[in-house]
Computed example of a mutant assay.
Amino acid sequence: METAATALTFRDAGDVDVDALVALIESAYRGDASRAGWTTEADILQGQRTDPEGVREVLKAPDSRLLTVEQGGRIVACCQLEHRGDAAYFGMFAVSPTLQGAGLGKAVIAEAERQAQATWGVTEMHMTVISVREELIAWYERRGYRRTGRTTPFPYGDERFGIPQRDDLRFELLVKPLA
């Protein structure tokens, strides 16, 4: 069995990766497969997390990259990086559920921060997390991110983001200084 210590290859995603990335993201967040890891949203959201169109939008967006992580020749993690002035936005983060808890996520987020700072000279990393995801927010806090208390509404009624199973969902902005 592979572990997070096995050599990782970081590269920008391309159109050829779309289907594999959709499968990875869905497996990390939705359905029974996601329960193998700890990042599942299956209890708060059903339906899709993303689709090929959503991944292609990230690939085509200006000042955006979809960092893809391979291990042993297969895609095991990914994250979006988007340049936004003095900050970079970190999103679409997914780690294969069977590899979660072994340090892979820590390695990916550290490399994403390094690349955002080196490429764009940003001084902060921003992300939004569903505010009821306390365990996930605590994980990000251990990586140096801080809750801001600034929230935006969850897009209820837009099934591209999933089908909410509760009525108190919103996104909270987390920020980490990089300089």
Rank of each mutant, 00 (worst) to 15 (best):
T98M: 07
T6G: 10
A33T: 13
W120C: 06
L136W: 04
R11M: 08
L8R: 12
D15M: 03
F161Y: 15
T6V: 11
E111C: 02
L21K: 05
T50S: 14
P52F: 03
E135R: 15
G37R: 02
V122E: 04
E70H: 03
Y140K: 07
L24Y: 04
E111R: 11
A107W: 01
E53R: 11
R84P: 00
V55G: 07
I137R: 15
Y89K: 07
G101E: 09
Y89W: 14
M1R: 12
L169T: 05
V58K: 01
A94S: 13
V18A: 08
L104C: 09
A36N: 02
G47F: 04
D12G: 13
G14C: 11
A20R: 15
L67N: 01
T128R: 13
L67C: 06
W38I: 05
L59T: 03
G37F: 03
R65K: 12
L66C: 05
V18M: 04
W139G: 04
V108G: 08
A77T: 02
V16A: 15
L104K: 02
T123Y: 03
M92S: 13
T9S: 11
T39C: 11
G47P: 06
K106W: 04
L178K: 00
S34A: 15
H83L: 11
P177N: 10
R49C: 04
G149Q: 04
R160S: 14
V18I: 15
D32P: 13
R147W: 05
D167V: 01
Q115N: 05
S96C: 10
G73D: 04
A23R: 14
A116I: 02
F10I: 01
H126C: 02
A36D: 08
Q71E: 09
A13W: 01
P155N: 04
